[in-house]
Nucleic acid binder design. Structure first.
Lengths: 200, 200
DNA sequence: TCCTCAGGTTAACGAGCGCTAACGACTCTG
DNA sequence: CAGAGTCGTTAGCGCTCGTTAACCTGAGGA
């Protein structure tokens, strides 16, 4: 199929274009702060033309949030399943995966904890469930590394570290840590330092 | 003045009531997701009655964001000025102050980095300036404690630790760390651990 | 060649929004 | 007791937004 080939390669589908631009605009000005005309203009078509690709504005947000939650959980599971080394190495791998996400898809990370309440009930429940599973994945690994840590504390630590890693949208200053690799390494160190401190 | 006495004591002004409820609603559903009728209903009056206290909906958000930025900066300055002990103790004090804020005024913390772009240009510039000063206050103290740390890295660390401390809105689960004091102590340890790891 | 259909267009509708206008009640104060 | 000022009310205006309807165009296949 040429469609799949195109999706995998350079040329993005119109649908994908729309999703990417919508994510950017939603992250910049909020879901209610962006009109469908703006989203259309961002991909070169006008307002109602979007309805050939999506049943409504809500559906775009839903697809974005469900998609990112699934990708996060799936990536986490893959990394845990690929665990040949120590629990310590698995935690490092989880952290790296989340950092990649936070650096590559800033606007999606922003949306992820900001516009969740604008979803229909069913979609919101789905996203919440995926998020919860992702957190529990981390909690298990963290408690595997720091064996004395109670579950409630481990969960709070994981949420806090997510907040730390998801701070990347605030690091977009002019001369701030230009090199992506250095930023990633720093965030990794900070996250490990936080976990280590939690275990006393 | 009885007004000041009332403001300091139990009975809140109508104006303060409005600000508190508006902060809660804005944090829950976003600035554009809340109507003036809802804000009015939350304080027992109806929609347009708000215009006896504020010139418009924007003004409520502006006052909230400017207010919180000023309080954060002012609190930070007070703690730095009260530095009789080591730089280490000052950093501990800054962390404690921010944690108090994150735990006591969750909705304001949420608004603070979420609805900034809905402000008029002048207000946004003011808030940004206050935020920047607050960050620089932290950066100086952090570099005082960890003397080898370059400025750019210190700034990134401060932003990351803010993300960590501001994760409190996500900790509102049912059986999650009920005691406020324990949560605060944990967050403090995590923040110190992150800073320590940044310094290698 | 003609039909179909995907993917656009513009016009317009209905709902909801922030906000104003006009008005009323209640409490001070001279 | 009159007058003013504070703090509400309801009605409604004007605008924006998401969405639908109706129409158009160009490419592909029978």
């Amino acid at each position: 199929m040429t469609a799949n080939a195109a999706a995998r390669a350079a040329a993005p589908t119109r649908r994908e274009q729309i999703l990417r631009e919508a994510a950017r605009l939603f992250a910049e000005r909020g879901f209610h702060g962006v009109g469908v005309d703006e989203i259309g203009a961002a991909v070169g078509i006008s307002g109602p033309g979007l309805y050939r690709h999506f049943p409504g504005k809500d559906a775009m947000l839903a697809e974005l949030l469900v998609g990112i939650s699934e990708r996060l959980l799936e990536g986490g599971r893959r990394r845990v399943a690929a665990a040949d080394g120590s629990a310590d190495a698995v935690l490092d791998s989880l952290i790296d995966g989340h950092i990649d996400f936070a650096l590559d898809d800033r606007s999606l990370i922003t949306l992820h904890d900001r516009e969740l309440d604008r979803l229909r009930d069913s979609d919101r429940k789905l996203v919440r469930q995926l998020q919860r599973r992702y957190v529990e994945l981390w909690v298990q690994v963290v408690r595997d590394v720091y064996q004395g840590l109670p579950e409630a504390e481990a969960r709070a630590c994981v949420h806090a570290v997510f907040g730390l890693l998801n701070s990347t949208p605030h690091l977009s200053g002019p001369g701030q840590l230009p090199r992506r690799e250095a930023t990633g390494a720093l965030l990794h160190r900070l996250a490990r330092g936080a976990f280590a401190a939690a275990a006393d």
